[in-house]
Design a protein around this nucleic acid. Structure first.
Lengths: 330, 330
DNA sequence: GAGGCTGATGAAAGCGCTTGCAAGCGCGTT
DNA sequence: AACGCGCTTGCAAGCGCTTTCATCAGCCTC
């Protein structure tokens, strides 16, 4: 029990080879002779050796760790992406250091420093880093930085996402085509939602519609806000015919509340969401939403990571697009 | 740009002290003289030094990393706990390595090995480790292991949770007292849900009730399953008067579907959930659920971690309890 | 004024692995 | 028979910190 953990040396001694050979066997089995490999494997078994990746990281200056920074995970549209990424990374032998940056990216700087201090191989960000000093710091750190979900003009390093503005515009086009006249926007206070709202408004008015009314809500958005947002409709001078919600949760809550008040959706009030959560297709009525393929984002991220690892050039802006999913609610 | 990252030595040279002193300043500023500290701080600024925690971990054999192993995060009742833990840990200067073990703890062994290989300071588990070999391995690894959400008789090291069986029993008592006669259970296929169901059934029948009908569903449970579960009620010989759902999501989906079918909840069909998600209190009708204080679990975990770090003895079974929250749906 | 104490700092030995370089070996070539 | 080649393996020098132990200056005490 008190006997210290076995080290590479112990395994090597038992297998009758040098530590270097054991190291090679562990990291790239194909370079050691089969017979030697078998002896080493047996020695590893016998000693109960567990490699020390911290030491390995120091020696090789590759930590095999990726930092994922997200605003939160309790209720987040990014969860699918994060989960898919963690899954993929794990099967490549990497670990994921998950850090929460808070609703307003409050702790972003701290967590970036932490990731840098751990010498992670890559940093995956969700949300936009607006602080120029931080951007600079990341650029000069020489680490792969992938910004996801958004698609900035000038990525820090690589960006995988889509244009939120375009998504907003597309929704405006969609609703106009369906014949809606008076949209009302429920907008979470995040850069991305704001951008979609702005795209929507620009497009809507450009097409000759009246300026939409709007309500801003806190992030992270959730079901309960849908209820409140429904109630707030009463304060408007004129009742909207469609409510464009910044997330599917808000849409769901709003629908439930409207129905409880005896309003028929979509006949008396149409509703749209964003994110195309699984639940959106299961609601009654099913919710019209914007689908973003979170798993696809994860795959593209992985592709970038692997290309980089192989020393290849990678694109710096990868657009995964989005799709308006027309369902019953609008 | 190509100049390698500054090291402790570089900072030391610039500040006119030894590397040891810089190290001390960084890790416990109070032990170096104020004037020296100021010079070091300036040197750190000037060189843009970022400490290398990988090297530090190797030298001190403390990684300042905690591994959190959860089944999934896309839709998980543990998210609040995980989030609270990550928050707390981060403010202590620790990082969290998040690993997903999959619905059936499929990848548990692999992820435990990974955590051990990284020499994490502690491993936090959600879900029960039944494999005796793994339990043994964890015990002998000499690392703090905290099992959460459950409360096994014989924890690997420390457990923070509550008795799922007792929660099931309590729900049975509650519903019987409210006068319900024919409960139907919707049970996710996880050890914990199973235990609650078993507690419910035992208690219900012990109190003279008829054996409840039941439907087993896959994990992770979600909204859509509620719809399906509602439909499946049609196959029962006799219609239940209350449906006891294994999660709030299932309850929510079931309520929506029942209402869409013109059934009044709870008058014609009562429903209960589990987890007391924020949404439960916002539904129409609000959902009767079982509250588990995820944040409290996180706090207790942190308390254990800190006590251990301080070399104190800790309790090995910490019961955080649960509460049935009576609302409108049952 | 000698002795002892306290607080601040330095020297140096690792922590456990990776990897560039070189050497040994067996074998086919010339 | 000398040579070169490819395949394995060992040697040894780090990777960048932490920490023990020792040193030293300054100060207090008797």
């Amino acid at each position: 029990m008190a006997a210290r953990n076995p080290r590479l040396d112990d395994v090597a001694a038992m297998a009758g080879v040098s530590a270097a050979t054991v190291s090679r066997f562990i990291n790239s089995p194909e370079v050691v002779a089969a017979a030697t490999g078998a002896r080493i494997r047996a020695a590893i078994e016998a000693t109960g050796y567990i490699q020390n990746l911290a030491a390995g990281a120091l020696a090789s200056s590759r930590s095999r760790m990726i930092a994922a920074l997200v605003p939160d995970i309790a209720q987040s549209i990014f969860n699918d992406t994060v989960e898919a990424m963690i899954d993929e990374l794990a099967s490549d032998g990497n670990s994921v250091m998950l850090a929460l940056t808070g609703p307003d990216n409050h702790r972003l700087a701290r967590e970036i420093n932490m990731a840098l201090a751990r010498r992670v191989d890559a940093i995956i960000l969700t949300g936009i880093v607006s602080d120029e000093g931080l951007r600079q710091r990341l650029r000069s750190a020489g680490v792969t930085v992938i910004e996801t979900w958004g698609l900035p003009e000038d990525p820090i390093d690589v960006a995988v996402g889509f244009s939120h503005r375009a998504a907003g515009e597309e929704m405006a086009r969609f609703l106009r085509q369906r014949g809606y006249r008076r949209p009302h926007l429920v907008v979470p206070r995040s850069t991305r939602s704001e951008r979609r709202a702005s795209g929507f408004i620009t497009r809507w008015m450009h097409d000759g519609g009246p300026e939409p009314t709007r309500l801003d809500v806190n992030v992270p958005s959730h079901f309960g806000q849908g209820r409140l947002s429904y109630r707030a409709l009463g304060d408007l001078a004129e009742r909207p015919d469609v409510v464009v919600c910044g997330s599917d949760w808000i849409a769901q809550g709003l629908i439930v509340e409207a129905q409880a008040a005896g309003i028929r959706v979509p006949d008396q009030l149409a509703v749209t969401g964003f994110g195309n959560l699984r639940m959106a297709g299961d609601m009654r009525p099913t919710i019209t939403s914007v689908d973003v393929d979170g798993a696809r984002i994860a795959r593209e991220v992985m592709r970038v990571l692997r290309s980089r690892a192989a020393g290849q050039e990678v694109e710096t802006r990868i657009d995964v697009g989005f799709r308006v999913i027309a369902r019953e609610s609008a």
